[in-house]
Structure formats: C-alpha cells, structure tokens
Design a protein around this nucleic acid. Sequence first.
DNA 1: TAGATTGTTAATCGATTAACAATC
DNA 2: TAGATTGTTAATCGATTAACAATC
Lengths: 231, 231
Amino acid sequence: MSPSPNDLTPVAIPEPTLKRLPYYYKFIQGQREARREFVSCTTLAEALGLNAIQVRKDLQATGAVGRPKVGYHVEATLDAIEECMGYHNTQDIFLVGAGHLGQALLAYPGFSEFGFNVVAAFDSDPAKVGTEFAGKPILEASRLSDLVRRMHIQIAILAVPATAAQTVTDTLVQAGIRAIWNFTPTRLAVPKEVLVQDENLLASLSVLSKQLENSRVKSHKESTHGKPEEL
Amino acid sequence: MSPSPNDLTPVAIPEPTLKRLPYYYKFIQGQREARREFVSCTTLAEALGLNAIQVRKDLQATGAVGRPKVGYHVEATLDAIEECMGYHNTQDIFLVGAGHLGQALLAYPGFSEFGFNVVAAFDSDPAKVGTEFAGKPILEASRLSDLVRRMHIQIAILAVPATAAQTVTDTLVQAGIRAIWNFTPTRLAVPKEVLVQDENLLASLSVLSKQLENSRVKSHKESTHGKPEEL
DNA sequence: TAGATTGTTAATCGATTAACAATC
DNA sequence: TAGATTGTTAATCGATTAACAATC
C-alpha cells in the first residue's frame, strides 16, 4: 500500500510552520484593520523577523495563493489560515487542576478567538469544588472520567502537580481523551493514538538561560564591545 | 578567522537537546533516590519514550561519560547536567506583569531548583503595587528600568497584555536586559544581542488541535477501528 | 570469554534557504 | 515594457537515526 501520487490526503503541515501561522494571522488582521487589501511576503517577513521565502512556504501550506507583483489578498489569506487551523470549529476543552497556573489558563483571553472553549475545570480541593473562576465551573475531580466520556471531550489541559500527572493521564486516556496539553514537567506515558503537547516551562527557561551563557562567552571572545546599558 | 580545530569554544548544544536535559535530570534524580548507582541509555530512553541513541548523544553533549556494559554513573551524570545547564549559578529574574499568568509564575515552585530566583514583579495596577504575592514584592512599573540597571538583571519574564508588549520590551532593552522569556503573543523587535524565548500558549494549543485533526483524518482513512472509550 | 553497552562515524530525514523561472 | 513578487525546484544545513567498532 504505497502512497499513490494522486492520493488526496493533505500533506501534514510541519510543526514549525503551524507555530508561525498564528503570528501571520495576527499581523494580517492588523493589515485588514488598516484597510490594506494585499500584503506581501517581504512585509510579513520584515514585521515578524522571519525569512521571506519561509513566509511564502508557510502560507503555501495553508492553501493561500498570492499574485505575483501584488502579494496575498488579505481577506482570502485570513480565510485560508482560519480554515487550515480550524479556528472556526469550536472545540470544547477540559482543564484539570485549578491551581495558580490552571486559574491563569481559565482566565486566559483569546482561546475563543482560535475556536477553543474551556468548558470546565476539575480539582480535588473541596474548597474550590463548586465555585467558579473566570465564569467557568470548578468540578469535583471524580467526575472527570464520566464527563469526558459523555461530552466527548477530545482535548484536556493538564495543570496538576507533577505527582498526580500520570494518574490523571491514565484516567483521561481511559475516558477516551485524544490529546493532552501537558503543563507538568512529567513525560507522560500514553498509547500512541493519544497526542501530547509538552509545555515544560522550566525547560524553556533553562534553554534561554543556557543560550544566554553561550552568547556571553561568544561575545566576550569576539570583542569587548560597549556597555549594553548604552544601546 | 576560520574556526581552528583546537578552538576551545564549547560547541553550542542544540535546542532540542537542551529541552530534553531536564527530563533526564529528573529521571536520574529518581534513580539516585532509588539508590541505583548506574543508569543506561536504554533505561532512560524507555522511561521517557525516546530513542536510546538520542539519549546517548544528548548526554554526550553535557560532557557525561558512560562505561560500556555498565552505563552512566548516576552522581557523575547529575553533576554533568547541573554543570552544563548552570543549575548551580543562581540567576536573579524580574517578572513584568502581575496578572493571572504572572501570578501563576510567581507562585511556580521549582524555579529555584534550576537556579532561578524571581526577585520581584512589576505592574502598573496601583491596587497591586506595594503588595506581595507568593512572598515576592509587586513593584511600581516605573521603577523597572532603574532596577534592571542597578541590579544587573539579565533575564525578564514578560507577562503583560499584548498591547504593552513592545513598549515594555523597549524599556527592558534600554535598561540592558539580555534575555526575555516572552509570554505575549507578540513577536518582539529587539536588537540581535538580546535573546527572546517565545512561549506562545495559543500557538501551542493550535498545533495540538491541528495535529489531532490530522490524526483523525489519517486513522479514519486507515481503518475504522474500535471506539476509543474501550481502550 | 561472551554479551551488553558505550562512543563514533555514516546515512537519513526534514526544515530552511537559495536560485531561478513564471507572471501580473 | 520593466520590475516586483510569487511559485517551484534544487542546495544546504542540522537533527535524528542507523551501523558498527571499542570496551568493560
């Protein structure tokens, strides 16, 4: 069963591209507000600090088509990105763990713009259960499994303490979850059909800190240039 | 000035590797607690769902050396990762924007384990200024510039509303900041010496959602296998 | 010794970048 | 028409994976 050339399966868009699309979207929205009808790759690239060819490839992946000499039609391109990313299809999401981070995510504005709807949070703290936060109900953790199943929830946000991460994950998987947005520093064991997107904050900060150290060494080697304060 | 072979500059560790190191570190710590003296790549790879060869390469980048047939010495490897990632050198950090997300980051445990110390938060809301959160003072935003300079702060966490992102960034850069951990959905314009690590939450969730859609199409094409609830 | 595991060198794969033709 | 910009095909680059020799 080799892939035939006339296979209509859309080619999977590379993850780096997917991560850049929201930036294009936001910028092009700005162009729309400024009543501009077309936008070029060069403009986009310059505004976002990217390579123009890369922008072109990325837009191509969404199905947007540009016109030589003119650029990309603002409206059509916004539509293409929306369609491609599924900003239209609202997706109900559960949040598990209503601690500080969980609450911040509950209050996070802008989920809805991208078609996400956090419908409820779950927590095991009796003091929180039954209350609301940012207009979303906090429910008893024991109800999680049943509700995932009955409401056919596909995506869960995992913001529980690291110690509970795998247990809660097992529950979610058993209940039929399809994807987990993981804010715990734990590598989750899941069956291969279940997607996990890790959001390891400490790891990201470590990367930044290490790169800073590198750049420090490098610039020190290259030359002793002026004090950064005066830039 | 071509790089000579006996150049002692340490080769920059690839970002994907840097992101995995904290996972190795955590797992090997667990092995230490379990009083195991050695750990092999295969064990690590299996526990973390990675490729054993990749683990070997990653550990190699930290300077850790293993012994054939035996594996990696737990203590020595932990030391190598700590040394490599600079977990020892404490780094003072400022948080800008004490909204829900900012507060969650203030309360985030585990920063200190990796050598980070969030010393203060800054906000423009008079109701917050002067108070404390999670034991950290929230200071008047106008003092940011001066304090970055005087305390030689190198890393800032940016958790302000998108509308303020670039303005605050400019202030930080002028004050001599070296790296920004950016939680806003804005692509920041900074001079090239300043590092930016983007943490675009909505973009990450979009990626997950899109990949879910892909996998749905794919598995639907491949076969109509049993209901996920019964896995 | 035999077998497991590391270390190293080569092959593969995917994303980015470059080159250039097509076009409005 | 000339020039700017897209679309496409090829080259480059870096990370992952594979193959295999070295070693305890």
